[in-house]
Computed example of a mutant assay.
Amino acid sequence: MALTIGIIGLPQSGKTSLFNALTKAGAPIGYASSTVKANVGVVQVPDPRLQPLAEIFQPKKVTPTTVEFVDVAGMGQSDQAGNEKKGLSAEFLGHIRNADALAIVLRTFANDNVSHPYNSIDPIRDLDSLNAELQLTDLTSVERRIERSTRSAKSGDKKYVQELEILRRFQATLEELQLISDMELSQQDHALLKEMFLLTVKPRMYVLNVSEGTLGAAGELLAKIAAGEQVDPTTLEGELKGIAQVGLRARAEKAEAVATSASLEAELSELPEEDANEYLESLGKPQLGTESVIKGGYRLLNLITFLTAGEDEVRAWTVTRGAKAPEAAGKIHSDIERTFIRAEVTSFTDFMECGSFAAATKKGLLRLEGKEYVIKDGDIAHFRSGK
């Protein structure tokens, strides 16, 4: 499963610095606000289980799973006539409409040398501004679909009559500046949403671009909020107040919130690993936000990783949590899913304790599983299929 995350935010929020930190692409910072181009990069998903397996099997290649990131120009800007945009252009929308999730970059750092579009730092205000543009974009899409469905419903076709009822509920929600994801959605609603690629229904994470010295404290604060600990933003000052507000918003929305110092992490990504780690030690070894963004994307989309291992290749594969063995086999090849017979499965932990498939079999830790087996994160699987 190819995971694609769209990176959006206001100008000067640090979107492209984040993109560069993730991809090491060296994309130019601050490209023209009128552009509709996008930066696209593919990133290997860090998985500490691959190297130990590679040391055992000495394979011809090691293949991690990947995530694609799409970075678009800053939102919330004026058009050439000086009027505020009313939603995203079709060209702009085309870059992110197929994204599986959105990474919304919100700036909390202050820097007199880096201007802010609103001339002050307020991540909740910025988020509301971005949401308004996403809502306007979706409202335009819904209204166009209503026009089409209204014409089709004149024939008396019940399908379009029911579709219109759903669309008008979507319309009312968006006109109230609410997210589609906040609605109670039926199976019919979800079926229609799959066709429409609306932005306000996509899973989202808030990437707080913090100052270098705040990175460690920001990560700890967001972890407390995610764990359900009580945090009162009014007792905090400076950056941490805004970070707490966004963290609480994310928890209420069942979204993700991570902290990054995008410019710092972009610079560190260009250094040798030893030098980068030495600098991180001087900062108290804060967890980098770039890896958190990837992990957050997996949590948002309820994804897990299973592994295959042998002399030819050690490889990571991505499936949706709850996938059964034939579906996982289909990630390797559709024919294996179609002719699936059984799976030979052991967990990564059990395999490493045994050191080989033979030893795992002898200890009863390599199991034969059928079509109803649900793949677990870290399973090492070998699939048997017929002709």
Rank of each mutant, 00 (worst) to 15 (best):
L10R: 08
Q188P: 05
S13N: 06
A227S: 14
I8N: 02
S149W: 05
A244H: 02
E68W: 11
D275F: 08
P28V: 12
K376N: 11
T235A: 15
Q77W: 01
E291L: 12
F92H: 05
E176T: 04
E372V: 08
L106G: 00
D138W: 05
G30D: 05
A316P: 09
P52V: 10
G82P: 06
E147T: 10
T63K: 13
C354M: 09
Y373N: 07
L192M: 13
S347Q: 10
I336A: 10
F170R: 01
A25R: 13
R249G: 00
R151A: 13
A316Y: 08
A276C: 07
L300G: 01
L280E: 02
S356L: 03
S155H: 12
E278Y: 13
L192I: 08
E281R: 14
M196E: 05
K158E: 12
A358Y: 04
A359E: 10
L177P: 00
F170D: 00
A110Y: 09
R107T: 01
G238S: 06
R97D: 05
I124H: 07
G87F: 02
V201G: 04
G216Q: 12
I29T: 11
K371T: 09
D379R: 12
A90Q: 11
K60W: 03
G9F: 06
K61I: 09
M1S: 15
A191S: 15
A132M: 09
A257M: 01
F197G: 02
G242P: 00
Q245H: 01
F357S: 09
P28Q: 15
S78F: 13
E274F: 13
A360V: 02
A343E: 04
A218Y: 02
K86Q: 06
R169A: 09
D122M: 05
E270L: 15
E327V: 15
L127Y: 02
K60F: 08
S334K: 14
G322P: 06
L199I: 06
A266S: 14
R125Q: 12
E133S: 02
M75L: 15
V246G: 01
M1L: 15
Q44V: 10
K224R: 15
A227M: 07
R204H: 06
A309Y: 10
E353D: 14
A153T: 02
S78G: 05
E184N: 10
L134H: 00
G228I: 05
E353T: 10
K194Y: 10
A255L: 07
G9L: 04
G30E: 06
P64E: 11
A257T: 00
I96H: 00
K371S: 14
G82W: 11
E220T: 13
A259V: 01
T346D: 07
G26H: 08
M1I: 13
D312W: 07
L240H: 08
A103T: 01
T66G: 06
V70H: 06
L185T: 04
L174N: 00
A27C: 10
P28N: 13
V67C: 14
H333F: 11
L93R: 03
V42T: 14
I8W: 03
A227Y: 07
E344Y: 13
S211H: 04
V142R: 04
K37A: 12
G14D: 02
S115N: 09
R151L: 11
D100Y: 13
E270V: 08
S120W: 11
K15P: 00
